[in-house]
Design a protein around this nucleic acid. Structure first.
Lengths: 221, 221
DNA sequence: ACAAAAGTGTTTACTGTACACCCATGA
DNA sequence: TCATGGGTGTACAGTAAACACTTTTGT
C-alpha cells in the first residue's frame, strides 16, 4: 500500500459464506450446506453461495454475517475467513469475493428458519451431491469442505455442529459424518477424554440402553 | 454475490506481501524481511510492507508479484495468499488489503538487487527486531511469521529458502533458524532421507572436513 | 594424528490402532 | 435374560527423541 488515494476504482468487493450443518436424511445425518437460487443475471436461476456486496462502513466479518442473514436467515455458530478469490475472468465484470466458512449447530437450523420465516430461494444440498453452481462457486465450496475436514483433525471445531452438551457417541458421529469414515468408539473416547478440553457433566442422555454421560467443551481452552 | 452491478463503490483494494529470506548477520543466518519506507501520508516516513493497489485487469497473484517487484525489485521463490485484512478503521479511508506471504532463496537476494539496481527506501529487518510499522502491518507480519513457522513443521516449504541443491546440514540450519530451536542432526537426517521427497545427487559440498552429499527435492511430489 | 563434521546404529518412550472384554439399561 | 450401546483394559506397531558410535576429510 503506497497511498490512500490510489487507483482502486472499478473493483467490486463481495463477501460470501460456505456454511455447513448436519441435517437428517434417510441414511442418518448428512453434512449439508444451503445455496441460494440467483434472481439476476449473470447465471440467473443457478444455485450460488449466499453472500452480497461489502458495505464501505462494515468490517469483513460483519459483512459475512449480514449477507448470510439476509439471504438465508441463518446465524453461524462459528465463522472464519477462508480465502479471497479474485481471478480476472471469474465473473463478467471485475469482482473479488472474500469468502468465509462457517458452522451452524444442528439444533438451531430449524429454530432460526421458524423464527425468521422460511426464506425464498434457499435449499440445502448434501456436500456429496452438489449441483453446478454459478461463477467459481463449486471450486470455492470444495475448498471450504477440504478446510473443514482438515481442521476437524486437529481442533475441536466439530463442537460448532453440536449443542452445548452432547454424548461422546454424538460427537464421534459428527466426526464420522464430516470425515466420511468410521472411528473406533473406545479409542475416540480415550483421545477426547484425555484432551483436557472436554469436561464431563452430571447429566445423562437416556434412551433405549445404558444412559450415556453428557460432556461439554471447556469455556476458553 | 447477488449481482454484477451492485454497490461496491468507494472501497479500494490493495495487495501486500510479507516476503522472508535468510540473511547473514554477525551470529549466523537470520530470518529477515524487507520493508519499504513510506513516501506519502498517512504514516509518512514509517516502515510498511511492500505492496500497492490492485489493477482491475490483473489476477491477485500477479498483483502481489508486480507490486513486490516495483517496490523492492524482488521476485519470490514461493508465493501464497495469507489473509485479507479489512477492518473499517485500519486506515483513514476504507481500504482492504489482500496479503500474500512469500519466500526468497537466499542465493537470489543479492543477485536480484544487483540486476535491478538497489531500490530506494528498502531495508531488511530481523523478524525478531521489527520496528513499528504503518497501519496494521505489525499484526500482519506477526501472522505471516506464525504461518511460516507452522507450515515448516508439516511441509517442505523450507526449500523455498535454499538453492536447488543443498546439504542436509544446510537444510537443518534453515529449519533451526526459522523455528528458533536446535534439532538433532541424526534424527533430522533420517526423517528427511526417509521422506521420499528428497533425492541424493552425486555431488558433494567440500569444505574443512568430510564432504557432505548434496540433495535436491523431487520435482513434483 | 587430530579436530570436526558426515553419517550409522541402538535404545527408549510415546502414540495410534485393533480388539477383547465388562457394565448398565430397556424391553 | 437378552440385545445393545456405554465404557475399560491390553497388546502391538510405528514414530519420535536421545545419544553412543564409526567414517571421512583438511590441516
Amino acid at each position: 500500500m503506497t497511498d490512500a488515494t490510489g487507483a482502486g476504482d472499478a473493483i467490486r468487493v463481495a463477501v460470501s459464506t460456505v456454511i455447513f450443518s448436519l441435517r437428517t436424511a434417510e441414511d442418518g445425518d448428512r453434512l449439508m450446506l444451503p445455496l441460494v437460487r440467483r434472481t439476476r443475471t449473470p447465471h440467473l436461476g443457478q444455485w450460488a453461495l449466499p453472500g452480497g456486496w461489502l458495505d464501505p462502513a462494515e468490517d469483513l466479518d460483519a459483512a459475512a454475517s449480514r449477507t448470510l442473514a439476509e439471504t438465508t436467515a441463518l446465524k453461524p455458530s462459528y465463522l472464519e475467513q477462508l480465502y479471497t478469490f479474485g481471478d480476472v475472468d471469474r465473473a463478467p465484470t471485475r469482482a473479488i469475493s472474500i469468502v468465509y466458512w462457517a458452522l451452524l449447530r444442528s439444533d438451531l437450523v430449524d429454530a432460526q428458519r421458524a423464527a425468521a420465516g422460511a426464506p425464498e430461494n434457499v435449499e440445502w444440498f448434501d456436500v456429496d451431491a452438489m449441483p453446478p453452481l454459478a461463477f467459481d462457486h463449486n471450486r470455492i465450496a470444495d475448498y471450504a469442505l477440504w478446510r473443514l475436514r482438515n481442521k476437524v483433525g486437529y481442533s475441536r471445531i466439530a463442537a460448532g455442529l453440536l449443542p452445548d452438551e452432547f454424548t461422546l457417541t454424538e460427537l464421534r458421529e459428527v466426526y464420522e459424518t464430516v470425515l466420511g469414515q468410521r472411528l473406533d468408539p473406545s479409542n475416540f473416547r480415550r483421545l477426547l477424554e484425555g484432551s483436557d478440553e472436554l469436561v464431563p457433566t452430571e447429566s445423562f442422555r437416556t434412551g433405549n440402553h445404558r444412559p450415556a454421560r453428557l460432556f461439554r467443551y471447556v469455556a476458553s481452552a
